[in-house]
Amino acid sequence: MPDSNPLQQPRVGCGAVIQRADGAVLLVKRGRQPEQGHWGLPGGKVDWMEKVEDTVVREVREETGLHVTVVRLLCVVDHFEPELGQHWVASVYLARPLDDAEATSLEPDAILALDWFTADALPAPLTRSARSGLSELSLLR
């Protein structure tokens, strides 16, 4: 087990595999570390005393303008970035849009691009959380 520093604590995050009725999923291109430039899931940091599922809904709305409902937990990802001094534990949920609103990047520094992708046309590279969540849905082979 690695040496622990009492000042270093894992951070709690979450992400959403947002899947439309036609099967396409929304992915965002990250503008910040960790995994800057990779295609990943909308999501973010869980706030103090906030339920993780509530965080998913809030973060998706803040980042993309979409209103979603959480369907189920897909997986939990341990993400270690020693060179950045970061350790994230991220729950990844399946979510569905509640309406036909258009997704848009509301945080242009954090999200460089976003788009809907089908399983046979996923972009690369993908973040760890995106790979794990998409694998759970059998969208990533």
Rank of each mutant, 00 (worst) to 15 (best):
E62N: 10
G37D: 11
L140P: 02
P10L: 07
L74P: 02
L41F: 11
S132I: 01
C14Y: 04
R58S: 00
A103G: 02
P125Y: 10
T55M: 05
A113Y: 06
D120F: 01
A110T: 07
H79A: 11
L106Y: 02
T69N: 13
G133N: 12
V60C: 01
S4D: 12
R11W: 11
W116E: 08
A130Q: 08
Q36D: 06
L139G: 04
Y93W: 15
L126N: 09
L66D: 09
V28W: 01
H38Y: 15
A90I: 05
K29A: 01
A90S: 15
E53Y: 01
G43M: 10
E50K: 14
C75G: 03
L7D: 12
E81D: 11
V77W: 06
G31F: 12
A95W: 08
V77N: 09
A113N: 13
L26M: 10
S91Q: 15
P10S: 10
A16K: 00
D115C: 04
L122E: 06
C75A: 14
G13K: 11
A119Y: 03
V12Y: 15
A110P: 00
A16P: 06
R30G: 00
E62F: 02
V92R: 05
Q8C: 01
V17N: 06
F117W: 15
D22L: 07
R141Q: 10
A95E: 05
G23A: 06
T118N: 14
A103L: 08
L134M: 07
C75H: 11
L137D: 14
K51F: 02
Q19I: 02
V71Q: 13
A95K: 01
Q19A: 10
P6G: 07
D109H: 03
G44E: 05
I18S: 00
W48P: 00
P123C: 10
D115R: 15
T127V: 04
E102Y: 11
R58P: 01
L114W: 07
E63G: 04
V12G: 00
P2T: 09
Q19R: 14
E83K: 12
S132W: 13
K51N: 03
A95T: 02
V17G: 07
E50T: 13
K45M: 08
H67E: 15
Q86H: 09
Y93I: 04
D78C: 03
V52N: 08
D22S: 05
A113P: 00
D120K: 07
D22H: 09
L112Q: 15
D99N: 13
M1Y: 00
A121K: 12
G37V: 07
V71F: 06
D99Q: 01
L114E: 07
K29H: 01
